[in-house]
Computed example of a mutant assay.
Amino acid sequence: MSSQSEKDKERLMQAAKVFFFHIQDLASFINKFVELFNLTMKTQILPMDLKEDSCIKDFFEQMIKNFKEMQVMADAKHKQMQKEPLCSKVVTTLTSAVEKCATMGPQNTAKDMLKNIQNPAVASVMNSSHILGSLESSLSLLMQFPIMGLRLSDFHREETKEQPGATTSEKSVSPERPKITPEDALKKLQDALRTENANKPVEVAADELEQFVKAMEPTLQVLQKAIKAMEGDISAFKEAGAK
């Protein structure tokens, strides 16, 4: 086998490994994003549950469903704000705060006021920045790649470390996963990427998977920036409320 073919195999396996960790990062970022969204919008969107045997297509479809649900909630809150402009809401909140101040104390009243303002402010940012729509569109485009039928474990498997002190019976409870050789893994990736008719199937498969990995990166970056912005807003509101 030529050295070029070996290099292409290494590229394909490396791209598969990077994809595996990108998916894990994506799940982690989305769950953090959902957590912050729930916190600020007073919603109860469920986090993503990613396992090594998760189907990539199911995972992407659930992400898109979550973003659509969040978009509906953000739109509803934004429409409510349009009927009652933010400045009007602030005035109403301040008026209410003055009325409550005598009984609750200024410290608690200020915190309550900031909570009431924070919710529509976040909805306004979500609507104006089109973050949710952008994320949904990016994921929809990624779903057009031909690897959606694979499971996460088809790309890479983490070595499971045996828990110290585990008894023989405890070890036998969870069945061992079937061993997959590198050749089997490569073949599965090539089949999924539909390279059987290519002159250099491994090279083409490596190129396609590297392209997919690269296409995922903007989505990860958007999520990271959105999380950072939301954390900054929440921190600012908390600091203001603590004063």
Rank of each mutant, 00 (worst) to 15 (best):
A15W: 08
A16E: 11
A16Q: 08
K17H: 15
K17T: 15
K17P: 05
V18S: 11
V18E: 14
F21G: 07
H22N: 07
H22Y: 13
H22P: 04
I23K: 07
D25H: 12
D25M: 14
D25W: 11
A27Y: 04
A27C: 14
S28V: 09
S28P: 04
F29L: 15
K32F: 09
K32P: 01
F33G: 01
F33R: 03
V34E: 01
V34R: 01
V34M: 02
E35Q: 14
L36V: 05
L36P: 04
F37A: 03
K42N: 13
K42S: 08
T43K: 09
Q44H: 13
Q44N: 13
I45L: 08
L46P: 04
L46H: 12
P47L: 06
D49F: 12
D49T: 13
L50Y: 04
L50V: 08
L50I: 11
K51Y: 15
E52Q: 14
D53T: 13
D53W: 13
S54L: 09
S54T: 14
C55P: 03
C55W: 03
C55D: 12
I56R: 02
F59N: 04
E61D: 09
Q62V: 09
Q62Y: 10
Q62L: 13
I64K: 07
K65H: 10
N66H: 10
K68G: 00
E69R: 10
M70S: 05
Q71T: 00
V72R: 03
V72Y: 00
M73F: 02
M73A: 01
A74R: 01
A74I: 02
K77M: 04
H78S: 07
H78D: 05
K79C: 06
Q80K: 08
Q80L: 01
Q82W: 03
Q82G: 04
Q82Y: 09
Q82I: 05
K83P: 00
K83M: 15
P85T: 11
